[in-house]
């Protein structure tokens, strides 16, 4: 019984660390590490909580965790690849949600005269 409590407390602590990391980290790599920490906590919990005290371990959660690990690995790999792409494009690997170049109406690499300018020019020449 007491062993179970220890595991659950540990899972909670790891999960909390992960949340903290996810929220405060700037670098995407750190955020991914934090997410992986949280995943570990969840898997730990999944194994411990359903375990029957009376005897045989339940195979179902173990199967679930195995699947979960596979998903976590592939997700992490994919996220890392995405991070590398982002790094190549913008020169650093952090998320700046507020700098969205297209929000300003300019597409990268092309400058266009908007209709307003066209219109102004048109009326000026008349």
């Amino acid at each position: 019984m007491s062993g179970e409590v220890v595991f659950v407390l540990a899972a909670a602590a790891i999960f909390g660390l992960g949340v903290h990391g996810l929220l405060t980290a700037g670098h995407i790599m750190r955020k991914l590490l934090a997410l992986n920490l949280m995943l570990s906590a969840v898997f730990l919990l999944l194994i411990v909580v359903p375990a029957r005290i009376d005897g045989l371990p339940d195979p179902v959660p173990q199967a679930l965790v195995l699947t979960g690990i596979v998903i976590a690995v592939s997700t992490t790999a994919f996220a890392l690849a995405l991070m590398v792409r982002l790094f190549r494009r913008q020169g650093h690997a952090a998320i700046h949600p507020d700098v969205d170049p297209r929000m300003l109406g300019h597409v990268t690499g092309r400058t266009s005269a908007g209709p307003q300018e066209e219109h102004d020019r048109g009326s000026g020449s008349r």
Binding site: A79, R85, R102
Partner: peptide, 21 residues
Amino acid sequence: DGIAALTAAMRYLLLGVLGSL
């Protein structure tokens, strides 16, 4: 492949994983 799209994808991924967690 624009910075905006990649950033958006990354954010979606991080939050999506958090959600599924």
